[in-house]
Design a protein around this nucleic acid. Structure first.
Length: 609
DNA sequence: GTAGGGTTAG
């Protein structure tokens, strides 16, 4: 009888409908076996596995005699239900109410809770208890400890525990590899993988995903190719969503498309994670149409699918579509979260929908109980300042419950310049000076603000400050993607084999632009030099070189796609608006903060960036 | 009968 019931419970844990779980539980209650032998613990296990935490708890609380198995099961249930803090808080009851000492199962679960909570201090305490216990040689708990220390950023501790594991298996290796890779310690993580005797998809995924999380996108791709050459079969989609994410970060559309093909070939196109990363990837590669197509074909869209497309549309200046999709999302019964509202307010700020943006901000708090973070305030501030509501913006800046950074002040200062608010500009500039400035572009803003008010002493002061702390501008570079090939240009680069052709083309364009009213805005040049020299500096900015190369080598009529590491320079922005209409081509630039679709003499960012 | 590692949006 028991065996039959136990077997049914275990079956229910992995399949069938929730109703059959309850029916089985009812039958056990009816025949009075609910406190009998292994049955109550197996009930907890079943409910936990099915994500029915309340029912698991009910059984746990009703048990006359809980043992270590009950405890281990309920802690796992909390962890599964994403409530690791509950594990930590009920744990002391194990000593008090039930007079039990933890075993290795309980230790492993607790360590897991600490890992999920990033609770290094508690984790250390659990580790200490584990070391003092009679289970201190348990390798599985040690694997959990490796994972916990790695996730809490304490790599040396992770390594120390890892070295004490007697029989290292795939899980222990994967935990330590993941730790090193996520911390960006590339060579060490790769070496660890090579030291492993039998590598599997898990360990490769840990390495590649970890490196992607720490920004080593290109290395990750090389390893992904190597993994496939090694004959590792991709039997689940985890690694695919990671690699698609890397393509998005590189804005490498061709690469992303190739991985998309692999997804189709392997049959993972209906996996939600894969769909969500594909939507984001196409949006980040400036192919918003492809992003929308994937979105439409995503069957069970969740809040991340909706948010990804809303944010994508917003970043491409398609605010109306983003807002309309938000309405669809609500109609579908999907609840927006903080990220969704970042995208929505951002969308509003791009098209000057000030009231709509404020309403959304209010709705986030009042209707969805979400507490705005710094990013929401920054978006709101942007919304005001882009539309010229500078007093409101300054007021918000002075009353918001966050310390704001240099970038926020700088953005308001640039709005002052744009709307000719000289006095406010000086006020903001003084605040910014007091804050201590690091970003080179802030110095340009400051210098221009003081120069605009003829405050030459302050201009000189900014310059002295700049020299004193030796502001180093990160070298600007732009990539242009032409089919499968990518060409990289650095500002002022003169050694390129096609330099002469590019120079001739840019000269011709410059002539035509000047006929149409272009005047170079040398205020964007940081260095102290004459006007002609400054103009010459601008002429060799990397985004222009990339566009020139694209015009010379790309398929006629095709969209020119450029990715820049820094923000587009203001003068280049004007130039690209001229160029797109002179040559009748669409130019898309993804810079460090947003997308610019240049078409018919205009840009999708409405000249704010 | 219970435990450990790898994926998505700002």
């Amino acid at each position: 009888m028991h065996h039959h019931l136990l077997q049914s419970l275990r079956l229910c844990a992995t399949g069938g409908n929730p109703f059959s779980c309850k029916a089985l539980h009812a039958r056990i209650l009816k025949i009075g076996l609910d406190q009998h032998g292994p049955l109550p613990n197996t009930l907890i296990y079943m409910y936990a596995k099915r994500g029915l935490l309340k029912d698991a708890l009910q059984v746990f609380d009703d048990m006359r005699q809980r043992d270590l198995v009950s405890w281990a099961s309920i802690l796992t249930a909390y962890n599964r239900a994403n409530l690791p803090n509950r594990s930590i808080s009920i744990f002391p009851d194990m000593f008090g109410r039930d007079s039990l000492q933890p075993d290795h199962f309980v230790f492993a679960s607790l360590v897991n809770s600490c890992a999920a909570l990033n609770a290094l201090q508690i984790g250390r305490q659990v580790h200490a208890q584990f070391v003092l216990s009679e289970f201190s040689s348990d390798d599985i708990t040690k694997s959990s400890l490796v994972d916990m220390y790695a996730k809490c950023g304490s790599l040396d501790n992770a390594r120390a525990v890892f070295d004490t594991i007697c029989t290292k298996n795939s899980v222990s290796w994967t935990a330590i590899i993941s730790g090193y890779a996520k911390a960006g310690r590339k060579s060490e993580s790769v070496k660890l993988l090579r030291d492993m005797k039998v590598q599997d998809l898990f360990s490769w995924t840990a390495l590649i995903s970890g490196l992607i999380q720490s920004g080593h996108f290109v290395s990750a791709f090389h390893l992904f190719v190597e993994m496939q050459k090694e004959g590792i079969k991709i039997i689940d989609p985890f690694i695919l969503s990671s690699v698609i994410g890397a393509s998005a970060n590189l804005a490498a559309q061709e690469l992303g498309k190739q991985v998309h093909c692999l997804v189709l070939k392997l049959g993972f196109e209906s996996n939600l994670y894969v769909c969500n990363t594909l939507i984001d990837m196409y949006a980040k590669c400036s192919d918003i149409i492809a992003a929308k197509t994937v979105f439409l074909y995503t069957v069970e869209k969740d809040v991340i699918s909706w948010t990804s497309i809303i944010v994508g549309l917003a970043q491409h200046g398609k605010a109306k579509e983003a807002l309309s999709l938000y309405n669809d999302m609500i109609s579908c019964g999907i609840k927006p979260n903080k990220v969704t509202f970042v995208g929505l307010i951002y969308a509003c700020s791009h098209v000057g929908l000030v009231n709509k943006g404020c309403d959304l901000f209010k709705s986030m708090v009042d209707d969805y109980g979400l507490k705005p973070n710094l990013q929401h305030y920054t978006c709101l501030l942007d919304l005001y300042s882009r539309s010229g509501y500078l007093d409101e913006a300054e007021n918000l800046l002075n009353t918001m419950p966050f310390e704001v950074d240099e970038a926020v002040w700088a953005s308001l200062l640039s709005a002052c310049k744009r709307f000719g608010k000289t006095q406010m500009g000086i006020r903001i500039a003084n605040r910014l000076m007091g804050l201590g400035v690091k970003d080179p572009s802030s110095y340009i803003l400051l210098s221009n603000a003081y120069a605009g008010a003829s405050m030459w002493e302050n201009v000189a002061k900014v310059r002295r400050l700049m020299e004193a702390i030796d502001v180093k501008k990160e070298p600007g570079y732009s990539c242009v993607h032409l089919g499968k090939e990518t060409e990289v240009f650095y500002a002022g680069e003169t050694g390129h084999p096609m330099k002469n052709e590019m120079q001739v083309l840019l000269k011709d364009l410059d002539e035509e632009m000047r006929k149409r009213g272009y005047v170079p805005d040398v205020s964007f040049v940081l260095h102290d030099m004459g006007k002609k020299e400054k103009e010459n500096q601008l002429f060799w900015h990397s985004e222009r070189l990339a566009v020139a190369y694209g015009l010379l080598n790309g398929v006629p009529g095709s969209v020119i796609r450029v990715v820049k590491n820094l923000r587009v320079c203001g003068d280049c922005h004007t130039v690209l608006k001229f160029i797109c209409s002179i040559v009748g081509r669409e130019i898309v630039v993804r810079d460090a903060s947003r997308f610019h679709h240049f078409k018919d003499g205009r840009c999708s960012c409405s000249d704010f960036w």
